[in-house]
Amino acid sequence: CHSECLGNCSQPDDPTKCVACRNFYLDGRCVETCPPPYYHFQDWRCVNFSFCQDLHHKCKNSRRQGCHQYVIHNNKCIPECPSGYTMNSSNLLCTPCLGPCPKVCHLLEGEKTIDSVTSAQELRGCTVINGSLIINIRGGNNLAAELEANLGLIEEISGYLKIRRSYALVSLSFFRKLRLIRGETLEIGNYSFYALDNQNLRQLWDWSKHNLTITQGKLFFHYNPKLCLSEIHKMEEVSGTKGRQERNDIALKTNGDQASCENELLKFSYIRTSFDKILLRWEPYWPPDFRDLLGFMLFYKEAPYQNVTEFDGQDACGSNSWTVVDIDPPLRSNDPKSQNHPGWLMRGLKPWTQYAIFVKTLVTFSDERRTYGAKSDIIYVQTDATNPSVPLDPISVSNSSSQIILKWKPPSDPNGNITHYLVFWERQAEDSELFELDYCLKGLKLPSRTWSPPFESEDSQKHNQSEYEDSAGECCSCPKTDSQILKELEESSFRKTFEDYLHNVVFVPRKT
């Protein structure tokens, strides 16, 4: 048989008469490798580009789960590009990614509803959504962080984005990388972005840091009482949809009607710091009717980097990364020049730590249904340095008659930039024990000054392991946590139920 035959053949030295091919099969003959313009397919066939392209389009058009959109890589027609490569849609070739590779997620039936953290986790790592997304989240724990972890990498949506009755959302900033909504599939009414009845939605994105392009379709905003109209108009300008909307697409009466839409800028007039305090004062603000001013709200939190936005980490279910302080308005003076500047002394802060701070007014709604208010920009203030805590785990070892090696770990709280350490030492008198000992005694162990690591005695271990207080009263049991108490109650309830079950099964009433 021919060298490319495997198993047997019907005619000697003829690659077209093989029972099976050793390498690849091409047009009725066995070959060692697939010549151009053919590609290896499933490690035994040679196919042309049209064959591989037909497989790709067949799966793409069917949208069946589990099928493969075949691509070409290293002269092979394979189910998908290997790690580190992405497909070129024009020629199906796998090309190296520039940075992290995109991950295209194809949605069944063309859309997916995100109504819980669990459903959001199914899209973790996706960068391109081939379909439409509907966000409908009523509640949950730590929602802002969970949504950002699972949806934060999405850069492109081919269909539309719909935010509907998501009472738990305060902001859409968890879509931190969303840059493009194509609108290839539109919501009824030709809408590519749809926001309806979101009672706590206050911000779409921080438009000073976020760009969003909507290729096709219109915007729809109705019944978002805490979303200011200025935020919607800003989205029109940034996304390129200005002029597409009709009169009733953006409701003037049901958007922002319960919001404090600040239209003035508060400026800080005085800032002073110490290692654990920050004193702030800002310019006074009074609405047209000074009785509408209820006070100020001061927001602050630790910020290692200057990239904080107002609604980071917030949701309507209680999660809030900001510390909020309510401040009463100052006494009002008739003389504008003698107006008191409101302020606040922030206490209990960490030394040498940068804080993000902003302040906003708290006002009631005027009778004319106009909203007044003022808010400052987010500023960054760093507390002063102070003395560091003591170095940890000092170790001293003498390696000769004239040297001592000293080692330690950095302090747990540096409280500033540590530039150097101060080492103090003092000579001590020799131990009298060394002169009084009889060095001729056998088995004498000389006193040693070398360091030995501390260890816990058996008594201390027994005390720590004991669940009861000892007789001397030195140790006591740790208080039980809520989960331990709940577990004990469940076990007790189970024992009672099981005992009742045994009584009912074992003891049967005697027939009379």
Rank of each mutant, 00 (worst) to 15 (best):
H222V: 13
E155H: 07
T185N: 10
M346Y: 06
R182S: 09
S366H: 15
N334L: 11
G217C: 06
S208W: 11
W352V: 04
L186W: 10
F268S: 03
F221P: 00
I114V: 10
S389Y: 02
I154G: 01
W205P: 04
A251R: 07
I135N: 00
E109P: 06
L204H: 05
E187C: 07
D384C: 08
L212R: 01
L151V: 11
I129L: 14
L169G: 08
A149E: 10
M235K: 01
Y223A: 06
L227I: 06
S173D: 08
A195R: 02
P288S: 10
C228A: 02
D115H: 15
L161V: 08
E231L: 10
L133Y: 03
E264F: 04
N136I: 00
P336M: 03
C228Q: 02
T213D: 12
R369P: 05
L265M: 08
N198V: 05
L123W: 05
A356N: 04
P336R: 09
Y372P: 06
R164T: 07
T127S: 14
D115P: 02
T118H: 14
S401P: 10
P342Y: 03
I135F: 04
S171I: 03
L362H: 12
L147D: 04
Q245C: 08
K177A: 08
P351M: 03
V359Q: 01
L161D: 00
K301L: 09
L345C: 05
S402C: 10
L219H: 12
R369G: 03
Q199W: 04
L279F: 13
R332W: 11
M346L: 09
P330V: 05
L298Q: 01
Y305T: 07
Q403R: 11
L180R: 09
N320H: 14
E155A: 05
Y305L: 10
H233D: 13
I163Y: 04
V170W: 08
W344M: 01
E262V: 01
M346D: 01
S208Y: 12
D257M: 06
S119H: 12
S119Y: 07
T371I: 10
T185Q: 08
Y380V: 12
D335H: 09
K103G: 13
T323I: 11
T309F: 14
K301N: 15
S158M: 12
N307P: 08
F299K: 06
P330W: 04
S239Q: 08
M346P: 01
E310H: 13
K267I: 15
H106L: 07
W408T: 01
E156Y: 05
A251L: 12
S400L: 13
P329W: 04
P329M: 05
E302H: 14
N190S: 13
T273Y: 08
E109A: 12
S116Q: 02
R347K: 11
P342Q: 07
D257E: 10
V104A: 13
T127E: 04
D292Q: 02
